[in-house]
């Protein structure tokens, strides 16, 4: 894809599909002259030229993204990518399994933070298995 505007268009389309319009609209509205080059980079290079590649489907890309963010302790980004993972078709059980698997490699503390973030996001999305039952106690 040699046309830079084509990479931007392709990237914006994938970004909207994976993250949802509400999130992308907020990011676009919040873009300033200061952050515009970074926004352009993530849209064209990451969403347009990486997430559009063949070789791995989006579910698999989401799994790898969740595990890398857990390992790095990037919990804010993890919340966004748990939502993205659901949009890409991962079930709550699969997301939990990715994090449990990851815990063996990152150590328990990083995975503990990741579980807390993922549970909060899944509960916000109405996932029954992630909602704390206050009446259970």
């Amino acid at each position: 894809m040699s046309d830079p505007s084509a990479a931007h268009e392709a990237g914006m389309a994938v970004r909207r599909e994976v993250l949802g319009d509400a999130h992308v609209d907020r990011a676009v509205a919040g873009t300033t002259a200061f952050s515009a080059p970074f926004q352009e980079y993530i849209t064209s290079a990451v969403w347009g030229s990486l997430w559009t590649r063949p070789g791995l489907d989006r579910k698999t890309r989401s799994c790898i993204t969740l595990t890398a963010l857990t390992a790095l302790g990037c919990t804010d980004e993890l919340a966004m990518h748990v939502r993205a993972a659901v949009r890409n078709g991962l079930s709550a059980a699969e997301i939990g399994e990715v994090l449990l698997h990851t815990s063996a490699y990152t150590g328990v503390p990083a995975a503990n933070s990741a579980f807390a973030v993922a549970q909060r996001v899944l509960a916000e999305l109405g996932e029954p298995s992630a909602i704390v039952d206050d009446d259970a106690s």
């Binding site: 799994c63 790898i64 698997h101 990851t102």
Partner: peptide
Amino acid sequence: LVTLGVLTA
């Protein structure tokens, strides 16, 4: 694939 991702990260 998850293991490759986390070991890389």
